[in-house]
Design a protein around this nucleic acid. Structure first.
Lengths: 151, 151
DNA sequence: ATTATTGTTGAAACTAAATTGCAATAGGAG
DNA sequence: CTCCTATTGCAATTTAGTTTCAACAATAAT
């Protein structure tokens, strides 16, 4: 842990771009939590810590951080994109409760099999897969049952 | 085929809402093609056929059509959401070329196994799954190789 | 070290997707 | 047919995300 910064630095250098304190602050903040994030939230977290990074910079840097494979888009909800950091996480997939928003991450080996099979079948060079499984978590189901809403 | 309209009508009635020609035009147009669609495209297709349905109506009705399980969001790209109709399609997953945008749809039985396993393991009531497999199609790979871009 | 080059920044203006307010219209129950 | 109110089109609004621009600063060249 902690060498996401080094990785991103070298990624930036290799591209002939410049390492700036703003970029470092953004990367650090992203990896300072294990949760998913969105731009607004990240911006507020940075502000709260006294950073003066602007939203424009966050928006400008996210595509770069994605290109460096440190984060990725996970879903678009409530009118904006949500991201997660993936360095050291492998291919994470999500089990999401549609009601309370709880997210459980998992990696499933069988998915790599499916991925491989599809690649061969359709002659694709696969880069990644994203599986989103959506439903009701046990808690929300209990509440709903208690309220007599659904079966 | 063709009874998506009937299904939607009864869905609307059951909710105590009203069946209008606009709603019918929208549903018909969505199901008149087998492709994915977005709001703008759908709007233009309708206009081209002489319909006077407004974009606001499309935006207002999409949540209802999703609730009726006739369509669903598939991905957010180029600044807007993309949808697909799912009635009669089962759970479709996508293999997408990141370069040319080609989409291959597939259903994989093993995913239902994974889904079931996850449901049991985490005590979730699963509603659906979405698998997006992303990579380069054979054509784009050939072009890239010819251009000497990537391996 | 100093300077020159040019990528990056914050702030504000802008663009486009999606939502909403409103007056007119029209389903559909009675 | 009549009434109630959901729905519509249009236009205004909101908001995520992008772009412009002048000031700044990271790096390379000197």
């Amino acid at each position: 842990m902690g060498n996401e910064i080094a990785l991103f630095r070298s990624f930036i250098s290799k591209k002939g771009l410049r390492n700036t304190p703003e970029r470092e602050e953004i990367i650090k903040e992203i990896f300072s939590s294990h949760d998913h994030f969105d731009v607004d939230e990240l911006y507020l977290r940075l502000r709260q810590k006294g950073s003066r990074v602007s939203k424009a910079s966050i928006y400008r840097n996210i595509p770069l951080i994605m290109e460096s494979c440190l984060i990725r888009e996970v879903w678009h909800e409530d009118g904006h994109m949500h991201y997660e950091h993936i360095y050291g996480h492998g291919h994470h997939c999500h089990l999401r409760c549609i009601q309370c928003g709880k997210v459980i991450e998992f990696v499933d080996q069988d998915l790599f099999e499916i991925e491989k099979r599809l690649g061969t079948k359709y002659d694709f060079e696969i880069l990644e897969h994203r599986l989103d499984v959506i439903g009701y978590c046990s808690e929300c189901r209990q509440h709903a049952a208690a309220a007599g809403d659904r079966s």
